[in-house]
């Protein structure tokens, strides 16, 4: 069996019938890519799922793998180990791929072979407060690296080489210790390792705005989490030239203190 170009990894939990359009969109995007000569496998990793969700995936033609992490990052890591594809395309169990996503992302990866993680250009959010989220390309002149400390640039549904995901897996979330946002931390860590995050023009995902019980990131927010530890900012500061001094800081002798 030859290695497929892409493995789609669908992360499931307890989505039930909600997962049906997700599976259908993944299958349709895979078929679209296959029609254009790109080989795709579709797999699902279900983390502590309920019976209905398992049945829905099976009905959709996917025999899922099961994990007991209670952590989407760890579930993705487990799936990546079993995946066969050269590239991994993540999809959450209630979101949808645009039909052309897999084919366009693969084409981009082949035309630019630097160390790149690919993202769709557009995210169409529905449910709750509908809006459009436009992804930033790291090579845009508007990109500021420091901003990623206060704001995550990209969703978790990236298109990345399996090798990278094996060498740089998602970190563990630990709500009790206020460590969440594993995708945010992974984005930072990959940048720290010299990878570039780029967008594939004209592509989109549809993202369901999660309910309070279903959203891992909302749970992280509610638990007042910060992103897991990264050395990114420490290294940036440490690499600054030592002679740099503060700007606009006025120095006065301490002896001028009130006596």
């Amino acid at each position: 069996m030859t290695q497929p170009n892409i493995t789609v990894v669908i992360n499931g939990h307890r989505e039930g019938l909600i997962a049906a359009p997700t599976i259908a969109s993944a299958q349709r995007s895979a078929a679209f890519a296959r029609d254009r000569g790109v080989s795709v496998e579709v797999m699902a990793v279900l983390d502590r799922p309920d019976e209905l969700t398992i049945e829905v995936f099976r009905s959709g033609g996917i025999e899922p793998m099961f994990v007991d992490h209670g952590d989407p990052g760890m579930s993705r890591n487990s799936a990546v180990k079993l995946a066969q594809g050269q590239w991994i395309a993540f999809l959450d169990g209630d979101d949808l791929f645009g039909t052309s996503w897999l084919q366009e992302a693969y084409a981009s990866s082949q035309s630019d072979q630097r160390n790149i993680i690919w993202h769709p250009e557009i995210n169409l959010y529905f449910g709750g407060y509908p809006h459009i989220f436009h992804h930033m390309d790291m090579e845009s002149k508007e990109f500021h690296l420091a901003t990623i400390a206060v704001s995550n640039y990209w969703t978790a549904l990236c298109f990345a080489p399996r090798e990278l995901l094996l060498s740089c897996p998602y970190p563990t979330s630990n709500m009790k210790h206020q460590r969440g946002f594993e995708d945010w931390a992974w984005n930072m860590e990959t940048i720290h390792r010299g990878w570039i995050h780029k967008v594939v023009p004209g592509t989109a995902h549809a993202i369901r705005i999660k309910t309070s019980t279903a959203s891992v990131n909302r749970t992280a927010t509610n638990n007042r989490c910060l992103w897991p530890r990264t050395e990114l900012f420490l290294d940036i500061v440490q690499q600054r030239p030592l002679q740099q001094t503060h700007r606009d800081v006025k120095y006065t002798a301490f002896d001028d203190l009130p006596a």
Binding site: P21, L96, G98, I122, F126, A206
Partner: peptide, 12 residues
């Protein structure tokens, strides 16, 4: 994308 996905996802 809307035209593409609206038949799959009724919520959309």
């Amino acid at each position: 994308q809307y035209r593409d996905l609206k038949d799959l996802e009724p919520d959309l």
